[in-house]
């Protein structure tokens, strides 16, 4: 009895907290696509409330061939998508993926996902930890897109 308690206590001792235990995910969703679309966009907000610095290095999903991070940029009146190889979250740092900005490229869906379905996503961090999250698929309206645009600095208040 006593031994078991000591063992449990040791297991719960914070060594160095892993990214996956510390980071918060908010407002995660994926945009429903027209039929036969080859790629889908995913959005979410990552928040790092801890004093550590964490780096998101890779993503994957059993529902897609490949997942990448991208940024939509406007240069010279042109729209451009640029890959974001990895994402560093400073202490108290926040990264927002939202329509018209940073987004997750969910490439090569294994089947068509519609509003009401879920995308399972795994996030891998440089400290070797990983985290599994769910992105509900939603049909966007001008309002969901617009709310996401406007809420970029206080995405916490936004519920989807």
């Amino acid at each position: 009895m006593r031994l078991a308690q000591i063992f449990l206590f040791i297991c719960l001792l914070p060594v160095v907290a892993a990214a996956a235990d510390k980071l918060e995910i908010h407002d995660a969703w994926a945009r429903e696509t027209p039929p036969k679309a080859s790629v889908m966009a995913g959005y979410l907000t990552l928040y790092n409330p801890s004093p550590e610095v964490y780096t998101l290095v890779r993503l994957s999903s059993p529902d897609f061939k490949r997942v990448e991070m991208h940024r939509t940029e406007q240069h010279d009146g042109m729209h451009k998508m640029l890959p974001v190889p990895q994402l560093t979250l400073s202490s108290k740092g926040r990264a927002t993926f939202q329509p018209g900005g940073m987004h997750l490229m969910l490439i090569g869906p294994k089947k068509r996902l519609k509003a009401g379905d879920n995308v399972t996503l795994a996030l891998f961090f440089s400290d070797g930890s990983s985290m599994k999250i769910i992105l509900p698929v939603k049909k966007a309206t001008a309002n969901t897109d617009r709310t996401m645009h406007n809420n970029q600095h206080h995405s916490h208040s936004q519920q989807h």
Partner: peptide
């Protein structure tokens, strides 16, 4: 273009409205 997952559907969604 249709393989554009982010900004093109966003614009089309606005035009739908």
């Amino acid at each position: 273009y249709t393989h554009c997952p982010d900004v093109c559907p966003t614009t089309l969604t606005e035009l739908t409205q």
